[in-house]
Amino acid sequence: MASEPAPISFARGAPSLDIVDVEGLRAAADAAFAADPAGTFSYGTSVGYRPLRAWIAEQHGVAPENVIVTNGSMQADAFLFEALVEPDDVVIVERPTYDRTLLSLRSRGGDLRPVALETDGVDVAGVEALLADGVKPQLAHLIPNFQNPAGYTLSLPKREALVRLAKDNDFLIFEDDPYVELRFTGETLPTMLSLAQDDQVVYASSFSKTVCPGIRVGYLVGPEKLIARIAKLATNTYISPNMVAQSIVAEFCRNGSYARSIETVKVALRERAQTLCDALAAQLPEARFVAPEGGYFLWVEMPEGFDADALFRAAGERGVAIVKGTDFLIEGGENAFRLAYSGVTPAQIEEGVGRLADAVRSLGVNA
Rank of each mutant, 00 (worst) to 15 (best):
I173R: 03
F174W: 12
E175G: 07
E175I: 07
D177P: 06
D177V: 00
P178R: 04
P178W: 08
P178F: 08
Y179S: 13
Y179F: 15
Y179N: 14
E181R: 11
E181G: 04
E181K: 08
L182C: 03
R183H: 10
R183E: 14
F184N: 01
G186A: 01
G186I: 05
G186F: 08
E187Y: 04
E187M: 08
T188W: 12
T188V: 12
L189E: 05
L189C: 02
L189A: 11
P190V: 10
T191M: 06
T191R: 11
M192Q: 07
M192A: 08
L193F: 02
S194C: 02
S194R: 09
S194Q: 10
S194V: 00
L195P: 01
L195G: 02
Q197A: 11
Q197R: 14
D198S: 14
D198Q: 08
D199H: 13
D199Q: 13
D199P: 04
Q200E: 15
Q200T: 15
V201M: 06
V201L: 02
V201I: 08
V202C: 09
A204G: 12
S205E: 13
F207N: 00
F207S: 04
S208W: 03
S208V: 10
K209T: 14
K209W: 13
T210L: 11
T210K: 11
T210F: 12
V211P: 09
C212L: 13
P213D: 00
P213W: 07
P213H: 05
G214T: 14
I215T: 00
I215H: 01
I215L: 10
R216Y: 09
R216F: 12
G218T: 07
Y219M: 14
L220F: 09
V221P: 06
V221Q: 04
G222L: 11
G222D: 07
G222P: 07
P223F: 03
P223N: 15
E224A: 14
K225D: 15
K225E: 15
K225I: 06
L226I: 10
L226N: 12
L226T: 14
I227K: 05
A228C: 09
A228I: 07
R229G: 14
R229C: 03
R229D: 13
I230V: 15
A231H: 06
A231I: 14
A231Y: 12
K232S: 15
L233W: 09
